[in-house]
Design a binder for these strands. Structure first.
Lengths: 348, 348
DNA sequence: CGTTGGACCGGAAACGTTTCCGAAGCGTGG
DNA sequence: CCACGCTTCGGAAACGTTTCCGGTCCAACG
């Protein structure tokens, strides 16, 4: 292993100077170009690679950020992860990925491990999580820049990035209404999910605006459930229930894409063709939506952008603590976007 | 920040003893229980957490393994990642996740970054990659335990885990044949993919065994393409082409699930009902397959197990280098499994 | 000509561990 | 009673950086 002292010896300068030159430290202003050249050549020749352990020990920096996911298998995650990874790459940070599997104990253990590694920031993808109050406490006292994606937060110590669920709900219903649908069935999200209520509020707003009456018998509620696959099952089951009622409807507005897929499956099974006889709209725009048969009309969450945004926030945070400025949480609410595909059609 | 010396002072022993006790080093045999108790209590009281930087610098260990993915958005990845993460967690390693985006330059840069971090092992998920020969060279000279998932390898410096594509292909055709299908269309994978040819070999073997003649006019070839979404598009397009030929077929055996979805979409669009009029079988069993409409019959790759297996191999490798034993690559070929769902049906 | 300040560089401390080496104490067998 | 081996512990040297603090030159300025 070749150390900085080897480079010093080879180049004829001290390790101090070598360090300054190779890191382009402020003092490098005073180093003449000739010296720099020599040192760089020596480093090059010996194939010198600084030891990150020593560097970190001395500088107290890890150039690493923790990424904590509540459930990797949720398709909601992957695009966010891509956004995070890509932006971190540009900023020369490396992500440590941890999957909490929706277990509190695992959360605690991972959080400790990450803090022990002196991660410089933390990004939490809190999709589909029924967050526990004391977990948040653990997070708050960690005192490193933290951003949470997909979960509304009131704290001013943790930043958050969420989609604007209210306008999303509005968008979805508005689309169905504009296609002429009046008898619409709804699959509402679980109460415990922070997304559910604003999304529903948007729907109600839009209904009022359109003078549309919502039939309470056509509103189904998803019970709490732990994983995204369950969401599919629930969409299926609830749609079956709705069909059994024999109350006619020409469209289903599902809580998310997964439940929308479940709904489509149930409709197909019952001999109802989508979209010819019944339209279906989802929420999220997970990657499956584009390739489904029929492809799914949905309200897209700009997931990659949300990941990028989260990294932006925490990197700012890192710089803030480096410059000893006060770090202040920011709460961003990004705009959703209607993506019209095959699963919705104007009512015949 | 509380250091080991603080604990030493508090407990009344030297930092040497504290270190030995807290790490349960071999020498801890000689430390009486009373001493241990005192030290542990002191550490507890002060809330001592060892500085990983210093620890790593001294012990030359990072307890970190690099995970390199060629394309995160490929649904093939997520379950593998889950398996990797979970097994690493149990072994108390933390993964650094990098996504190469199928770019050579990114591969090189990330590899350097990972090696600089002194990762103790590397796992590469090489789905859908057209591997470059010189990239492999870089990997080989890295001299840390390395496992590659999803890409057959001959080297004996890099381990590999792949599914047995040949028996997989066999399984798929056998299933269709047993359902009575005789006129079968095939979508073959791109030549450059290492999976393609063994999978096809399995199909041919099965055909011979069943005395089934393969109609060359019903065999479509996927051109090279870079991303998994393209696979869907190609499945769609090639199936359209097949249909245009007006040569009747009652089943499609697709290269993978993505192209199978494309095929289903094309069939639906052409008014052909799946599975009533035409069966479709895929390969992989990505998470979408179970929720598709109709749900997809496919040949499953045990992805989570493959991730687990990869971790097992490299962790053994790590232990081997720790004990200065020779590390020797192992090449594992895991058995695929036929998953029968709705998209295939016996020919009427 | 003395002083000042900027350019250029090096010595050595510090970061917090782990571990090598050796010392002291004590029982025990010869 | 001596030597030896086991238990129990501490001093101090690493590990490889970064950076504080200072030194030496030399030009310029009053």
């Amino acid at each position: 292993m070749v150390t900085i002292r080897d480079v010093a010896k080879e180049s004829g300068f001290s390790s101090t100077t070598v360090s300054i030159v190779l890191n382009n430290a402020p003092l490098a202003r005073y180093i003449p170009a000739a010296t720099k050249k020599k040192i760089e050549r020596a480093a090059q020749k010996l194939g010198y690679r600084p030891n990150q352990f020593a560097r970190s020990l001395r500088s107290k920096r890890s150039h690493t950020v923790g990424v904590m996911v509540f459930d990797m298998t949720d398709p909601f995650c992957t695009l966010i992860l891509r956004g995070i990874e890509n932006t971190l790459y540009q900023a020369s940070y490396l992500p440590i990925l941890t999957d909490v599997h929706n277990e509190g104990s695992r959360f605690e253990r991972y959080l400790e491990m990450l803090l022990d590694r002196r991660i410089e920031a933390l990004i939490v993808i809190a999709n589909w999580v029924f967050l526990d109050i004391n977990l948040l406490g653990d997070l708050e006292k960690s005192s490193i820049p933290t951003a949470m994606i997909g979960c509304e937060l009131k704290t001013d110590s943790i930043s958050s990035i969420i989609v604007d669920n209210e306008v999303g709900g509005h968008l979805a219903l508005e689309h169905l209404h504009s296609l002429g649908h009046r008898k619409i069935a709804f699959i509402r999200g679980p109460k415990a999910l922070t997304d559910s209520s604003p999304r529903w509020r948007g729907i109600r707003n839009c209904a009022k605006q359109c003078d549309l009456e919502l039939d309470p018998r056509l509103i189904a509620d998803m019970p709490e459930s732990r994983d995204p696959l369950a969401s599919f099952e629930l969409g299926y089951k609830l749609t079956e229930d709705l069909l059994r009622q024999k109350r006619p409807f020409t469209a289903v507005l599902a809580f998310d894409d997964m439940s929308a897929f479940g709904a489509i499956r149930a409709l197909n099974k019952a001999g109802v063709r989508v979209p010819e006889q019944c339209s279906v709209i989802g929420f999220d725009d997970v990657s499956t939506s584009a390739i489904y048969s029929p492809s799914l009309t949905t309200v897209r969450q700009p997931m990659e952008a949300m990941g990028t945004s989260a990294v932006g926030i925490v990197v700012d945070g890192i710089n803030a603590v480096l410059e000893k400025r006060e770090i202040t949480a920011t709460h961003r609410k990004v705009a959703p976007e209607l993506v019209v595909r095959e699963s919705t059609r104007s009512v015949s």
